[in-house]
Design a protein around this nucleic acid. Structure first.
Length: 728
RNA sequence: GCGCGCGUAGCUCAGUUGGUUAGAGCGUCCGCUUGACGUGCGGAAGGUCACAGGUUCGAAUCCUGUCGUGCGCACCA
């Protein structure tokens, strides 16, 4: 009946046809799975809409599609909800790099023009990403697809903003923040990468005002900030400086008078035990300054240059200023000595520029503030959810990592001084013309309507906050925002979602924030399980990056070896929380496997003449084979249910190749050729193949579906599409 | 300073409630194969599971320590 099947499986020939078959069937949308009851939900971590997919995306597609297809076949209402992320800062950087080739940057355009250009750029990329997800076999429900800048998503984000404000969990304030002078925006603590650097510790002498023979020596790594000093602090318990307190000394660059104060935060054993206080440019100093009511003397501008308050350093960059200040200190005899000093310096995670602590008005989420009936903070709620096992993190050692990070969590800066993103929905009254307005500090929160005048004092002199929200503030709401923004009952049916599958590298950036915001808005955890996969590295354990030239393009690989091979290569040997090493050889190996599936099937199909599907009399061994595969099914199901995807894949690989193909087919071959008990042989082969295809389908959907479409079906219960067959 | 990992075949890695002969991909060696598949088949070599001690009838797996190695967080005057 079936002859002349090609000798090799050609992925490119069937990929569009097969994906279209699935898509047209409508079964990506769980609404169409009528007999399926129990919901199973995965919200896709939205890829950034600023670049095509890389190999890391292929990992999540493989794992999430595997789970979705498995649960769909088990008769569950499987929803895999796709989307893309505007990825605020990331995208702006990518885009600015692009236009830099034309000698332009964001300041070459108006804010509105720039936004439109990036919008168009991301929309183009979204189309590419969608096409790529399809080629990787993603069985997600495109009818529910969302973008983080969709109007209905922004609406949810703004609602959250407003609620947080009303609950007192959101505040605006002058705080010291991590500022990148190159990108000219502030960051949260997470975007700062610390690197060990060889530096110098400079010992600088500050003379007493009323007695130049007396002085105090301060150790600093940042002498260029001396013009920003507003005090010298010593520890109150430090015997050496007992009678120095409240003395006035002369700051040696701009010759201002500053006092010596005491504060317990000064460490007696570091340097000389005396600390210069520069509230505008150091986090600890900021706190000490605040508690002592000291002036915030900003001497570095937001463009990274020193300003007029720095006297002779004015106009210089930070680096230049350091050299200059050392020269001045040497000349006036204030530099007592230099010591080599190794310390960690914060850098912008994107461009490597040294992060400058700056004082700015920013919006913060108060993660440590207790609120509501339960009187718990966002942080406490999140920690509790994990402790009470309402959320399980796989692998579980990351639960400890999670607690450790949460312990150290400080308020979250969500203001970004960029154009691309969701604008902070706040206006400020410039006049603050009455007491009420002043009591509100002129802050007008108005997410859904642009105000025309100040609601407190009536002034029309109002301006909008120029900043946008941290991208993670919106993606942190993704699990419920996508469901709220879709069909009416989605949130009821699909929330809490089943699994959040993502990389361990964004456990803090994203997962922790989703837990906090999900619990805040929905009073329920956003997901029951967090499955963390590793980072993809090359053969030499190097992180893949374009600049290193070691990237593997998943789509190119898919074109050459097929998506099925790529998926298996990314799955086998991939255990949660561990990095994945991938090489072309490995992918080739699984290409051979997909071809093995093709050829074993080909053999079975070509030897089904006269076979009618009816069960003939079977030998004992035949019966054993049919029983054995049920055992395999049990084993594979157990592995999948316990998130041991690699072991599940390996089990099937082994069974199909080394048991089914190498042993059983070889044995039956003789019976078929010699016409000995042939019907039974055909029956066994046909049914083992069918079960194998079903189990392999979530792993290798294209080759299995292709064969399913070709093979004859005798059982009326057989589905037209393998994707919705019942799991064995 | 606090915390989390890793060390298994030549290479890269699996090995999840401790249980026969420790697995995979690639590589090496020998043989086979003219009809499912050279993208194949059969077979072989190759592992004191970092080291030392302990628990156990039994340890790659659990505990303690040592060495090597990677990472996160905090501080960072």
């Amino acid at each position: 009946m079936i002859k002349n099947l090609p000798k090799t499986f050609d992925f490119n020939k069937i990929k569009n046809k097969i994906y279209r078959l699935w898509e047209k069937s409508g079964y990506f949308n769980p609404d169409n799975l009528q007999n399926h009851k129990k919901p199973f939900t995965i919200i896709m971590p939205p890829p950034n809409a600023n670049d095509p997919l890389h190999i890391g995306h292929a990992v999540f597609v493989t794992l999430q599609d595997l789970m979705t297809r498995y649960h769909r076949m088990k008769g569950e209402k499987a929803l895999w909800l796709p989307g893309t992320d505007h990825a605020g800062f990331e995208t702006q950087v990518v885009f600015e790099k692009k236009i830099a080739q034309e000698g332009k940057n964001r300041f070459s355009f108006t804010r509105e023009e720039f936004y439109q250009l990036v919008w168009d750029y991301t929309q183009k990329n979204r189309k590419i990403v969608k096409q790529q997800l399809k080629q990787l076999g993603a069985s997600c429900d495109w009818s529910r697809e969302k973008f983080t800048l969709d109007k209905d998503i922004i609406k949810v984000v703004y609602q959250t903003f407003e609620l947080l404000w009303k609950d007192g969990l959101l505040y605006r304030g002058k705080r010291i923040v991590n500022y990148c002078p190159k990108h000219q925006t502030a960051f949260s603590d997470l975007e700062v990468k610390y690197q060990v650097e060889e530096g110098k510790l400079y010992f600088v002498r500050y003379n007493f005002k009323n007695d130049p023979t007396r002085y105090i020596i301060v150790a600093t790594t940042r002498p260029e900030t001396i013009p920003g000093d507003v005090a010298i602090a010593v520890n109150p318990k430090d015997e050496r400086y007992k009678d120095y307190l409240n003395q006035i000394v002369i700051e040696p660059i701009t010759l201002r008078e500053i006092p010596i104060i005491s504060d317990e935060r000064v460490e007696i054993n570091f340097g000389t035990g005396a600390l210069k206080i520069t509230p505008a440019h150091d986090a600890t100093d900021f706190e000490i300054g605040r508690d002592h009511n000291l002036e915030i003397r900003q001497i570095i501008n937001f463009d990274g240059h020193l300003n007029e308050l720095s006297g002779p350093l004015q106009g210089l960059t930070i680096k230049e200023a350091r050299l200059k200040v050392i020269e001045i200190l040497k000349n006036n005899g204030s530099l007592i000595k230099e010591e080599n000093y190794t310390h960690e310096v914060g850098h912008c995670y994107k461009c490597g520029t040294v992060i400058e602590p700056m004082v700015m008005d920013q919006w913060f989420v108060a993660v440590n503030k207790k609120f509501g009936k339960e009187n718990k903070s966002l942080k406490e709620l999140a920690v509790e959810a994990v402790k009470l096992k309402k959320i399980k993190i796989i692998p579980n050692n990351f639960e400890k990592v999670f607690y450790h990070w949460m312990d150290n969590l400080k308020d979250w800066n969500i203001s970004r001084q960029i154009y691309w993103g969701i604008r902070i929905p706040v206006w400020y009254c410039q006049d603050q013309a009455n007491e009420i307005c002043r009591s509100h500090q002129g802050i007008i929160i108005s997410p859904f309507k642009k105000p025309t005048k100040c609601p407190y004092c009536g002034s029309k002199n109002i301006i909008q906050d120029s900043d946008v929200l941290d991208t993670w503030f919106s993606s942190g709401q993704w699990p419920f925002a996508t469901l709220l923004a879709n069909k009416k009952d989605d949130i009821k049916i699909y929330y809490p979602t089943s699994v959040m599958e993502t990389g361990w590298d964004i456990l803090f950036f994203w997962v922790a924030r989703m837990i906090m915001l999900g619990l805040y808005r929905m009073k329920k955890v956003p997901f029951k399980v967090v499955y963390l996969h590793g980072l993809v590295r090359d053969k030499d354990r190097q992180k893949m990056s374009k600049s290193k030239g070691n990237v593997i393009d998943p789509l190119a690989v898919s074109d050459i070896y097929g998506t099925d091979a790529l998926r298996m290569a990314l799955l086998i040997g991939n255990s949660p929380g561990r990095d994945i090493i991938i090489s072309e050889e490995k992918i080739k190996g699984y290409r051979n496997f997909s071809n093995k599936i093709w050829n074993a099937s080909r053999f079975v199909l070509m030897n089904l003449n006269d076979f009618n599907g009816k069960k003939p009399k079977l030998t004992k061994k035949d019966q054993k084979y049919l029983k054995d595969i049920k055992k395999i099914a049990k084993k594979v199901s157990k592995y999948l249910d316990n998130y041991h995807f690699s072991l599940a894949g390996e089990t099937l690989y082994h069974y199909f190749w080394h048991t089914f193909a190498d042993k059983i087919i070889e044995e039956m071959k003789a019976r078929i050729y010699q016409n000995k008990n042939k019907k039974a042989a055909q029956y066994v082969l046909y049914n083992l193949l069918k079960d194998s295809l079903k189990m392999l389908h979530p792993f290798m959907p294209f080759v299995t579906e292709t064969i399913w479409q070709i093979m004859p079906h005798f059982d009326k219960k057989d589905q037209k599409i393998l994707m919705i067959e019942k799991w064995p």
